[in-house]
């Protein structure tokens, strides 16, 4: 059984369906990429998984249990799911080290010293230990995204959801993030990433799912989607990407 199984997921905002029957599986150890045009519901999809957004209908199984089930503890569900935001969302009043250690102390109940050691270990893993005393305002975008990743990894999540992790980065930094994701993939970290950055998508996955008009239109190798797909909206999407990059 896959780590995450999404079936016929629907989400309506004000009676208008944004997700209209999405099916997606994420297997353990997998890096799954979902692409789609702006406003197609990529963020909404990720937020349904950790219940930042309440699904309207359908099912999401995480580790075999329905996430909207009556006796699900939402806070413990969220602790098992890392989340990376487009705008990094580092806590700006905390240093790099404290950003990484906060969850360990307040949610995992670690002592200050233990949490700092664990946080430092994760920062080291992402080459950010040297910046541990800096504040977010003094980091570049790529460095911020590394810290956000370290912060997520420190919690030892079963999966990390990435919401357009490169759209606020320049191409060089985006490539760095892609390398990092590939490295983590190699270490066995499971990830579900939504993006509309074609270069980034092709750097981290061979296959992508294409989300549009509320459903996964197709899931296939990027080269197939890119070159000869009959569906006009998909061709259109990838043509536009080509021109803009």
């Amino acid at each position: 059984m896959a780590l995450i199984e999404i079936r016929r997921l629907r989400k309506l905002f004000d009676g208008h369906p944004v997700l209209n029957g999405v099916d997606i599986d994420v297997a353990e150890g997998d890096v799954k990429v979902v692409m789609g045009p702006s406003g197609c519901g990529k963020s909404t999809l990720l937020r349904c998984i950790n219940r930042l957004v309440e699904p309207s209908s359908g099912s999401i199984h995480f580790r075999g249990a329905e996430v909207t089930g009556p006796d699900v503890n939402v806070r413990s569900l969220r602790q098992q799911i890392g989340f990376l935001f487009q705008q990094f969302a580092l806590y700006r009043h905390l240093s790099v080290l404290d950003n990484t250690a906060l969850g360990l102390r307040k949610l995992k109940g670690m002592k200050k010293k233990e949490a700092a050691e664990r946080a430092l270990h994760e920062l080291n893993r992402l080459d950010m230990a040297g910046h541990r005393h800096k504040f977010p305002a003094h980091l570049s975008g790529g460095q911020k995204q590394r810290v956000a990743l370290a912060r997520a990894l420190a919690m030892d999540p079963a999966v990390i959801l990435l919401d357009e992790p490169t759209s606020a980065l320049d191409p060089v930094m985006a490539r760095e993030v892609a390398q990092l994701i590939n490295r983590l993939h190699g270490e066995g970290v499971t990830m579900l990433c939504v993006t509309h950055d074609l270069e980034f998508a092709s750097a981290i996955a061979e296959r992508v799912a294409f989300l549009d008009e509320g459903i996964v239109q197709v899931e296939d190798r990027l080269s197939v989607l890119y070159e000869d797909h009959a569906h006009p909206s998909i061709r259109n999407f990838f043509m536009k990407q080509e021109r803009s990059s």
């Binding site: 806070r75 413990s76 602790q79 799911i81 989340f83 935001f85 806590y91 700006r92 969850g103 949610l107």
Partner: peptide, 13 residues
């Protein structure tokens, strides 16, 4: 920043 609040919520706070 609303994103920071969401990040904290999504950690399980």
């Amino acid at each position: 920043d609303a994103a920071e609040i969401m990040a904290a919520q999504s950690m399980g706070m």
